[in-house]
Design a protein around this nucleic acid. Structure first.
Lengths: 128, 128
DNA sequence: GTACAACTTCAAGTCGACTTTAAGTCAAGG
DNA sequence: CCTTGACTTAAAGTCGACTTGAAGTTGTAC
């Protein structure tokens, strides 16, 4: 297995080199090995990035992802960490879903006002 | 109906004075009348703020709200403007809902890996 | 021997909706 | 007259996830 430069990693994983540098900077990726100043990566970095991408798709922030890798007591198993965070995330999604639902309701009920200032009056006085 | 200072308006509408100044600055509220330098408001401002708050609850950005008030050709009725924007918003909400749904799916399927690097391998090779 | 591409670092810029800060102005009360 | 408190302005700061820019280094190709 050959070692990869940052732009090769970026291309394979579908992100920009700057994002990978950023991940390293904030500690989501460990500091990469350098060969004459340039970062070199191996397979495990690709795997780690795959997990990161999956976690981001699931709605985790980079901060939460860092916790997933480094944040807990060493006794906590990784899958347990994932489940703990996933639990919290699901609750957040539930809240978000309800917000969206109420937005949808607001958007669908046409208020019946011809002008916006009429609408404003109603909102202010009759709680329309 | 008495005229109101900015902090009276803020209190009545449940927002901060700085937010009202900001709304004026970006053109969501028209420039307020000044009495010896201080802003003075009347009923119509409260109504307008009520519309703004309702629109924000419905998910509109301040930019979209400005369009709601000032952005279209004068021939377009306000209710028509609302409907046009609401249509777009509903589509956005639909997309958002689907994103959330797929997040939920990702969160609920436990991947069955004991360690995160095992998980990474699977993600990378078997598209787990 | 020099041009070039691909990298490096650190700092600053982006987006939206505000808030915060600093410095100044104003009317009323003691 | 002087302080107090509520206001004014313009400018800068906040949050997250990056991107962009400037200036410098490296190995390779001509």
């Amino acid at each position: 297995m050959p070692e990869l430069s940052i732009s090769e990693v970026a291309q394979r994983m579908g992100l920009r080199a700057s994002a990978i540098r950023y991940y390293e900077q904030i500690g989501v990726l460990p500091r990469a090995r350098r060969v004459s100043g340039r970062r070199r990566y191996d397979q495990t970095t690709l795997e780690r990035l795959a997990v990161i991408q999956r976690a981001r798709q699931a709605g985790f922030s980079l901060d939460e992802i860092r916790q997933l890798f480094f944040g807990f007591a060493r006794t906590t198993r990784p899958s347990e960490r994932w489940e703990k965070l996933a639990q919290r995330k699901l609750a957040e999604l539930e809240a978000l879903t309800q917000e969206i639902e109420s937005m949808r309701t607001l958007l669908q009920e046409s208020c019946g006002c011809e002008a916006l200032d009429e609408c404003g009056k109603r909102l202010l006085h009759h709680k329309c």
